[in-house]
């Protein structure tokens, strides 16, 4: 039975689709932000594997078709980016500078943490892309020799944390401007945070969405330069 589930061509993909829908349903029913569908699906997936005694390597192999779609899906992030750039062209320079400041803060503080805890290169680059969107972050981690699976977990948890803390952090930092709020949410907690930004208002949501792609690209560039510091 374990062998059947480990090798079945459609079980892994079906399980992922089912888990995500179950997670989305749970979120809608309870309205609790920490029950993010992706977080719930990952936890549920771990549960299913432990229950059926399927090891995660064969599950990942069976789910290969999903990974294959990741590159074209990431390429398509250009579509929302293009839609949003037209909306906020007026603030282009301030936006870019703000996002760049956030990316610099992220990379420098991860560097400091890596130095304090005397982490090796693999550990450092695993945490480096933690604030950017999963699609880009997991590839940055892989390219630099990090542990991709841990990067994904850390990115998702960062997103959920940003989603939950967006409102209190806006008050703490006295962010009243919707454009500044959008930059803060999108740069610090990517797509999962953006879900919260969209609930605030349209401008915050659009700017947050735009910040996902821009901070992702800036982080790729910075990681190419600073990835070898540790």
């Amino acid at each position: 039975m374990t062998e059947f589930f480990g090798n079945a061509a459609y079980f892994a993909v079906l399980a992922c689709l089912g888990l995500y829908q179950a997670g989305a349903w749970l979120k809608k029913k309870t309205g609790l932000a920490f029950l993010n569908p992706l977080l719930v699906s990952i936890a549920g997936g771990v549960g299913v594997l432990l229950l059926l005694r399927v090891d995660s390597t064969s599950f990942a192999r069976a789910a290969q078709p999903l990974s294959w779609l990741l590159t074209p899906a990431t390429v398509c992030l250009a579509i929302p980016l293009y839609r949003q750039v037209r909306l906020v062209r007026k603030y282009a320079l301030s936006l870019l500078a703000g996002i760049a400041a956030g990316v610099a803060a992220s990379i420098l503080s991860v560097l400091v943490i890596a130095l304090i805890f005397e982490m090796d290169h693999a550990g450092y680059v695993t945490l480096l892309p933690k604030s950017i969107t999963t699609a880009i972050g997991m590839v940055v981690s892989r390219e630099q020799g990090g542990v991709e699976n841990i990067t994904v977990a850390v990115i998702v948890l960062t997103g959920v944390f940003g989603n939950l803390m967006a409102s209190p952090l806006c008050r703490l930092f006295r962010l009243t401007d919707p454009v500044a709020r959008g930059v803060a949410i999108g740069t610090s907690s990517h797509a999962i945070g953006t879900a919260r930004a969209m609930e605030m208002d349209d401008v915050t949501g659009a700017v947050s969405g735009l910040s996902i792609a821009v901070s992702g690209v800036l982080t790729v560039a910075a990681a190419a330069i600073l990835g070898n510091l540790v």
Binding site: P37, L38, G45, D55, A63, L69, P72, T74, V147, V152
Partner: peptide
């Protein structure tokens, strides 16, 4: 493709099960 994107991360996320040892070593950072 963008709508189904979160689903594409589930296999990698579930894969964390296979590197629990490495994660435990860097839990605090």
């Amino acid at each position: 493709l963008i709508e189904i994107m979160p689903v594409l991360f589930i296999p990698a996320g579930v894969g964390v099960l296979g590197c629990w040892g490495e994660l435990k070593a860097m839990l605090l950072p």
